[in-house]
Structures are given as C-alpha cells and as structure tokens.
Amino acid sequence: MTSTATAPAPPARRPPPRGGPGRRWAGWGFLAPFMTVFALVFVAPIAYSLYLSVYRNRLVGGTSFVGADNYRTAFTDPVFWDAVVRVGLFLAVQVPIMLFLALLLALALDSGRLYGRDFFRISIFLPYAVPAVVATLMWGFMYGTRFGLVGNANDLLGITLPDPLSPGLVLASIGNIVTWQFVGYNMLILYSALRTVPHELYEAAEVDGAGQLRVITAVKLPALRGALVIAAVFSVIGSFQLFNEPSILRNLAPNAITSGYTPNLYTYSLAFSGQQQNQAAAVAVIMGLLTMAVAYAVQLFGMRRAV
C-alpha cells in the first residue's frame, strides 16, 4: 500500500526497522478498523448464508449436507417464481410512475415559479420521514371498506368503490403506498442534481433563444441522467426487497396477500414460520444475485444512453 506517500515524516530518514515487505503491512493496519467491521457485518453474514444454504435441517432426521438441493428446489418452486414475477411487475409499473412524478416535482421546484417553494418541498418529502410500518398501518386504515376512508366515501356518496385490499387490487394499493413514501425522496435526489447545473448554461440557452421547454429537454434532462439512473437503481433494489407493506397489510387482507407474496416475504415465511432456514438462505442468495443483475443492467443501460 502507499501509506508512506502521505506520512508526515519521510521514513527514509530513519533506518528501516524491517525489510520492504514489512512496511506493506502498515497499510493494512490503517485499514484494520474498517476491514474488521466490513468482515463482521458484510462478509460474515453472506458467507454464513451461503453455508446455511447447502445444509438442510428437518424436524425428523436432523441436519444433513445437501449440496445444491436447496437451490434446485428454489429454481423449480412455483411460489418463489410467482413472487419474483409479482415484484417484477411491480417494478415495471410503479418505478416509472414514481420517477416520472419525482421528475415533474423536481422540475417544478427548480423552475423558481412556485409559490411557497420551501413548504412545498418539505411537505412532499415528509412522507419519507414517516416509518414504513406506520405509513402502511395508516394506509391500511384508509383502505378499509367498512370503517376506513374508502368506507366513508362509500357511505357519503352512496357508491361502492372497489375494495383496495382485494386480490386484484392489493398490488396497486401497495404501489400507491410506496409511491407516496418515496416520491419526495427521489425528488430530492433529482432536485439536488438540478441545483448543480452551472448557471452559465441557462444564460447560454437564453441567449440562444430557448424557451422553458427547450431548456428542460436540452439542459436539465441531460444533466439529470446520472441522478435518474441512481434513483432507478435504488428503486429497483427497493422493489425487489418489498416486505414491510405486504407483511403488514397481510393482517387486513390475509387471503389477498399470501405467505409468499414477495420474495422477501417468502424468505421470511420459510425461515420463521416453517423453520426452513436453509431453504430461506438459498432463496435469499438467488434473490440477491437476481437483484444485483437487474440493478446492474439498469445502470449499464442508463449509462450507455448517457454517452
């Protein structure tokens, strides 16, 4: 390592205490605090999951080494793939809607034509500060067709709104909660990217006679590309990890949200209800790889277009 380069006292003045190779370890010494924590909280859990995933523990018969059996089971498990397809659908619909809304809001904020801009910004961001569990409980209450907001609307207007917690609509209802929560967060990412656009660019555009729309398409959107890709990657990961919302709404709609509704919920059910920690570990490993692959693809796609 090159820690000597930044050392305040040039070591050459002192007689070298040890040979060259010895000095290389000094760098590791500086890295040690980080590496220890990294190994403990990052490498160890992953290694442990991998270890778990090649064993199987049964109520009758105990623990045995099963190699790739758990992975084979997962790959042919319809419950797992249904869950993957479900979050895939969620991602394909919810993420674009959310990012589009966030983009509109960020552009509106940045336009400088908004009255009460600071209030607007904080109130859109506020849902992000509400813990997901609380937000879901709150929405779950509103979705209630009997005593909730939907129920009130039905009573007041004498209509029958479709039940947001019915099997056909519950995914959209979850999408609504997630959008409500994360639009402000994504808006802030995009907005801060917009703030870094050099003012000269706007002046140049003005000199060239560009209107507001032209400024957006020619200056602001290209400047936002990197931030959009980052926001998209975060959202992709978030979609694949969907857990809080379905897990809490399950209490209200136990038949619409099955125990394997999303991959994470499935992993949870396997591990904590079925005591199938090994199978859960295998599913988690597959999901981790899948998420990485999709997030990477999104990034690659986004960056290529930026060039």
Binding site: P45, Y48, Y51, L52, Y55, N57, G62, T63, A271, Q277, N278
Partner: peptide, 11 residues
C-alpha cells in the same frame, strides 16, 4: 443473524 449454524439444534 440471530440464528446459529444449523447443525447445532439437533446436537
């Protein structure tokens, strides 16, 4: 993780 290596429960 709060679960130990799986071979242990049986033991």
């Amino acid at each position: 993780m709060n679960t130990p290596p799986t071979p242990r429960p049986r033991l």
